[in-house]
Design a protein around this nucleic acid. Structure first.
Lengths: 130, 130, 130, 130
DNA sequence: GTGGTCTAGACCACC
DNA sequence: GTGGTCTAGACCACC
């Protein structure tokens, strides 16, 4: 796994790095027990100081997604994937609630909203297939 | 129709007033040809200066949702409701696209997303029924 | 660029100010990216309150000709000049249609009308040269 | 010649009647010495009181376009057509001046203006031919 | 320094 | 009664 970020993005580099790892865990690209790329290696790949990568990994450790083993590296924890997926599910649920509120204020029924979701999902699939 | 706003909200008062009217138009509470509450009346109800209400109504006029008739008041235009509903639909579609993007990064399938939408819709219905 | 208006004109001051700027954009005196004179400066030059200038600039922003940048000023937008020129061309076409209708009711042929246009154009050129 | 007007038009009936006659004179449909339709007849055709028609005809007499002959009717005067055509020409010239002024403020050259006049003239001819 | 929002109050035009 | 324009002045946010 190679981590790369966008240095021109205004989002702090350490947050971007943490996000990339979180997404990899959520999607199963990194599974329980898997080793994260070493700090030095990620620092080179992202053209960022080692301290910045360190901060990103510590962030993930505080969150309980990964765990450092002295002299060996960072490893994905047992419940990490489930925890991250649950957090993302929560965030999606919140956005859905906003969406439903907005739909209600727009005279859009839930039926129509779901149709729109299906429609857009198909459109994205097609575009992704290109 | 009585317009009221939240003076402690950081959102400018004139925008809040415009939004209340826009929503009323989108939902059909104010229909084509209907008269908006007079500027002075809304100023009293919202505890805001006449100029501020004036600005809100002017905003809606620029948008083509209402039209002023000198000495008579502001009236909802013919195509106003359709225009506003279409704008809101567009905004909902954009949020759906964001949501689908996020769902994909979270290993959430479209099927699961739609189930979540249905679930939340039911929950909100229940809460609304209370 | 210095904006000045006629305070004794019955046309509202904010419209006069907006028209001066619109004309400057149409003629290329203000080009895409150019900064408008600051609100306070124009208020002094036109002997009008800041709010009045503000309203004029807001009008232009609603129209898409200029754009405000917080703490920096108002700037002419990319497509502003083209948009304004097209609008003016449209307005001229409408006046030409009226003129042709009137000419027809006056037993004036199109040929004669065009001769009149050329004649008047020359007269104005001479007067402008003085 | 039958005179008819639009009773729902906000323009006063007597002015509408006078305009119809003036246009007929300018176009040569009514020539020097020709008799205008009798007041009573025009009153019936326009569904208007005889006094109103009378006022219209008097207006034209004041202008020197027609002349009453006791017990006989109203007749187009000798110089009437020329006078009316000159007046209309003058009015057209004034509108052309406005147009040229506007064109100048819009970065439209006289050449382009004349092209627009020719273009619109052709368009109107085609539409009239239909 | 630059724009954004708001108030209180004046005077006007149209109805 | 209803909207339209304007002033003088306040306080704020972004730079």
């Amino acid at each position: 796994m190679i981590i790369s970020i966008d240095l021109y993005n205004s989002k702090p580099a350490f947050l971007q790095i943490a996000d990339v790892v979180r997404t990899a865990i959520a999607r199963g690209a990194l599974q329980a027990g898997d080793k994260l790329p070493p700090i030095r290696e990620t620092a080179v790949n992202t053209r960022v100081n080692r301290n910045t990568v360190s901060r990103a990994y510590l962030e993930l450790e505080h969150q309980g997604l990964v765990q450092a083993r002295q002299g060996s590296g960072f490893f994905v924890t047992e419940g990490g994937a489930d925890q991250e997926r649950e957090a993302r599910r929560q965030s999606v649920v919140e956005k859905i609630q906003e969406l439903l509120g907005e739909a209600e204020l727009s005279a859009l029924s839930t039926q129509e909203l779901i149709k729109l979701v299906e429609l857009e999902a198909k459109r994205m699939q097609k575009e992704g297939a290109r």
